[in-house]
Write a protein that binds this DNA or RNA. Sequence first.
DNA 1: GAATATACGGTACGCTGATCCCGCTTGTAC
DNA 2: GTACAAGCGGGATCAGCGTACCGTATATTC
Lengths: 188, 188
Amino acid sequence: MTKPARAPRADARRNRALVLRVAAEMFAAEGLSVPVHEIARRAGVGTGTVSRHFPTKEALFAAVLLDRMALLTARADALTAREDPGTAFLTFFAALIHEGADHRGLAESLAGAGFDIESAGVDAGSDVSGRLHAMLKAAQRAGAVRGGITFADVKALMSGCLAREVDPADTSALDRVITVVCDGLRTR
Amino acid sequence: MTKPARAPRADARRNRALVLRVAAEMFAAEGLSVPVHEIARRAGVGTGTVSRHFPTKEALFAAVLLDRMALLTARADALTAREDPGTAFLTFFAALIHEGADHRGLAESLAGAGFDIESAGVDAGSDVSGRLHAMLKAAQRAGAVRGGITFADVKALMSGCLAREVDPADTSALDRVITVVCDGLRTR
DNA sequence: GAATATACGGTACGCTGATCCCGCTTGTAC
DNA sequence: GTACAAGCGGGATCAGCGTACCGTATATTC
C-alpha cells in the first residue's frame, strides 16, 4: 500500500541539509524577515530547490527549529532531575532567553511577530513549552516562585527580555535584564 | 522672504484632524501594520487626502504620537515634583507600560518592530525618554533602584511587558508582569 | 552505457501595500 | 456671483516577496 518510495537522491539530501544550515544562520542573524530568495542565493541554489524541499517559508523555519528544540528539551529534563525546582525553573528560563538572544528568528516568533511556533507544529514533538510550564508549577509548589504568576506571564517576560532594545552583542546587558526578571519572579 | 502662505482651507483642517483621530484609533487597536488605505476608508476620505497631509505613513504615526507624548511629559514632571525619586520612577515606568498596552502601535514601535520613535523625531519636542532617564538616575542615587541597571535595560524591560503574549484585555496579567519587573528593579 | 525518474535553476505570476498623479470639485476672496 | 487656487478622490504605478512552473541536467538502476 505504502509505496516503496526509494531513497532520495544524494544531491537532494545534500542540498536539503545545505539549505537548512544556511537558513538557520540567516534566521538567527536577520530574523524572520529575510527573503527566501536571499537564503537560496546564499546557499548557492535556486529558489525552486528551496521551495521543493520546504513548501513554504514557515515550513522551512519549523524545520530549522526542530533539532534545536530537541536539545532544549533534553536540557530541561536534566535540570529537573538534578536541581531543586526553583533553581531548575529559573535556570531553564534563563537558558531559553539566551537561546532566543542567539536566534533572532526564534525571538521574533516567541514575541508573536511572524509565525506562531505552536501552530507551526514545531512544539509537537519536543515539548519545550510543556517542560517550562511543568517546571513553573513545580517551582511554585516548592515556594520558590511567587504564586500568582501564570505561564502566560512567564512567556511574556521571556519574550520581553528578547526585545530588540537589548543589544545582542552586549551579554552583560542581557544578564542584567535576566537578573531583574528572575529576582522579580522569586518569592519575596 | 517667508511667503505669507495664507491659512489652510477649513475643509482641509477638518480632514486633517479627522484623519489624525481615525489613525490614532486604528494604530492603537491594530498596530503599525494597518494599511494606510484602510485608515483612509474608515475616515471616509481618499488615500490621496491622507498622503497629502502626511507624506508618509511614518509621518502620520509620528503626528499621532506627538500630543500623547506631551501629556506623558507633564505627568512625569508632576511625579518628579510630588513623589520621592523611587516612587516617581517606578510609577512613571508603570504608566508608560499601561500607555503602551492601550496603544499597540506605540508598543510595536518601542519593541523596534516598525518605525523607530526617536529617529522619527517624535521625541524631539516632548522628551519622554529624557524624563524617564533622569528619573532612573535620581532613583538610583536615592538608593531605591539597583545601581547596575542602564537606561537601555529599562527600555528593554518596558517593551518586554508589552509583548504580544500579554493579553491586552487582561489587565490583571499586565499588572502581575509589571509587579514582577518593578520588584526586580528595586534594591534588594 | 543507456534509460529514466528525480532534482535543479531560475523565470513568471499573483498578491499586498505605499506613494504619486491627474482631472474634477469646492472653499475663499473680491 | 465669479474666478481661481486649494483640496479632493481614487486609480495608476512601483516595489518586495512567496509560490508555481518548466525545460534542462544528472544521479541511479539495470
